[in-house]
Design a protein around this nucleic acid. Sequence first.
DNA 1: TATTTTTCTTAAGCTAGTTCATCGCTTTGA
DNA 2: TCAAAGCGATGAACTAGCTTAAGAAAAATA
Lengths: 195, 195
Amino acid sequence: MEDLSPFVENINRKARLSPENMALLTAAFKVVKVKRKQLLIQPGFVAKYRIYVLKGAFHSYVIDDKGNEHTIQFAVEDWWLSDYNSYIHQTPATQFVEALENSIILQVDYQAEQQLKDTNWELATLFRLMAEQTAAYLARRIVSNLTQSAEERYNEFVAKYPQVVQRLPQYALASYLNMTREFLSKIRNDKVRKK
Amino acid sequence: MEDLSPFVENINRKARLSPENMALLTAAFKVVKVKRKQLLIQPGFVAKYRIYVLKGAFHSYVIDDKGNEHTIQFAVEDWWLSDYNSYIHQTPATQFVEALENSIILQVDYQAEQQLKDTNWELATLFRLMAEQTAAYLARRIVSNLTQSAEERYNEFVAKYPQVVQRLPQYALASYLNMTREFLSKIRNDKVRKK
DNA sequence: TATTTTTCTTAAGCTAGTTCATCGCTTTGA
DNA sequence: TCAAAGCGATGAACTAGCTTAAGAAAAATA
């Protein structure tokens, strides 16, 4: 049996739920073990689940016309992810969601989430807060993409998520920060030399 | 008296409200006339309002360390905007929201919106759907920023919003698309020559 | 443990996009 | 109605970041 307390605390930080509703919510999520390199979501298939990472690491990415991979989002312990467009609108995904390590997730399927939202005020509020916070977070990311240079984006990421950086493959981080792996390699190396 | 039917239809496309709730919602929004160049939101002040554009055009932008202006969002008739982070978290704004034309807006203040969401199921659902759709939209924009070249981003924008392009100052569109005004000018000109 | 595959580094040459500067054309405001 | 300011076009010089290529290091797999 997995320890769900990180999940419970994550939820508690967003909204205060009654014990009954916390139990209802928790029951709607299923624990799933995922092997490294396993795909949770693939282009062409509708994203069926909203995913919370209990243990491990994931990234979501798209592959463009030229065959280049672009990481859209990372998630490690206590983070959420999905192909947000596909999940919310229940349309075919455009992104891959892939495990970077052997991982354990909690997932809720779209129907179950709808049912909770349709029948339970506190849980509907929780999901509203999650959507609002997601939108606010994405808005901040757009601003930083529009205003910062490649090096500044890297510095910001390292400052914000110092422990995460080391767990991510550099090529994935590079594409997340909208630069080539080679250029990221150069930035890191220039930094070392300056010291 | 302004004609609010575009607003009503905008809402109806998102959620089916009872006539009473539509009346409640509409009553929470105030009609405000805004002059060209007027600022609705400024850095340092908490964004008090969520804004719907009934008539006119706006853009939101930030000014970076080097003094450069970056347009984050546009809004013309039937679009919504605010400094989303500031509004949702009620923290000081980082963005300007400025009228590009003499405009008429509907605005709801944060307290009023909270009160509606706290007391009314249908309206709480409406705002949840809005947040989900906003997040989905922002996620799409991040993908297109990560995967497309400057010219492709311009083409996409023109294809999506052909009528809007002509009303926007070119320098604002250029910074929205993450390029200089000069480069946008070049792209447009290359296009004309090819024909 | 050896072998294969994937990831990271380095460096040279290149290009998409920027910067700077100049010139008309419009708007704006006194 | 005239001056001032703002906007878009153009071009030359520049640079941040990309491409290509090849080797070194690390990780996965047998």
